[in-house]
């Protein structure tokens, strides 16, 4: 945490709303994008963003500085989404075990088309972008959260571990399975073209 951020946190803990506004400015965009990628819905993300900062303001005195302030904020945002999802109790069953290995232990041929150098394999391709966003949405929550923090928000495995309070091997394993799942979905898109 930078010295400036630490001062802003201390002022906020003493009830200084102006200082807290500065903290909002510093972190709102990243938190908002995390929420957008987790929920896939703009209106819902806006509600969660508001809830995140309101919760953070109300709980700021309990922030002891043992972690980065941003890690603490991310945890509040992620928990807000996961709590709501748990309450809704909608269990989506998406198979994460893509059958990509044959009985002989080799990679299945139909998955081996190399679309990576296709001129349409670019983030400029709106159709592909939508396909990728839809595939992320399809991921079960525990995989999606790790993937978004790690590959979309570009955090390190260690940062993700701190936010989600899970082990490093769990971060790595969830990330890997999520990446395989997305690759499978994008391969499906390219096979269809």
């Amino acid at each position: 945490m930078s010295a400036n951020e630490q001062i802003l946190v201390e002022k906020s803990q003493n009830g200084d709303t102006r200082a807290f506004e500065q903290l909002i400015k510093m972190h709102e965009q990243k938190i908002y994008n995390l929420l957008l990628n987790m929920t896939g819905n703009k209106a819902v993300s806006e509600d969660f963003l508001q809830e995140t900062f309101l919760n953070a303001w109300q709980k700021i005195k309990s922030f002891r500085g043992n972690s980065e302030f941003s890690t603490w904020l991310y945890r509040i945002a992620v928990n807000a989404v996961l709590m709501k999802r748990r309450k809704r109790k909608t269990v989506r069953t998406v198979s994460m075990d893509a059958p990509i290995i044959t009985e002989k232990g080799e990679i299945k041929r139909d998955f081996a088309d190399d679309w990576s150098k296709s001129p349409t394999a670019t983030s400029e391709n709106t159709e592909l972008k939508n396909k990728l966003n839809k595939a992320i949405e399809l991921l079960p929550e525990k995989y999606k959260t790790v993937l978004v923090l790690r590959d979309v928000e570009n955090m390190s495995n260690e940062e993700v571990q701190k936010i989600l309070k899970i082990s490093l091997p769990s971060v790595k394993s969830r990330l890997h399975r999520a990446r395989l799942f997305l690759r499978g979905k994008l391969s499906g898109y390219f096979r269809g073209h």
Binding site: Y32, L49, A112, D114, A121, L147, V152, L182, R183
Partner: peptide
């Protein structure tokens, strides 16, 4: 060949995730 194809597409998938645009609040 197959490992190389799989690797390239896997890597590209991760790159595409990195390129997801940030939205303004």
């Amino acid at each position: 060949e197959f490992c190389c194809c799989f690797f390239n597409t896997f890597k590209k998938t991760v790159e595409l995730c990195h390129q997801i645009e940030m939205q303004e609040v």
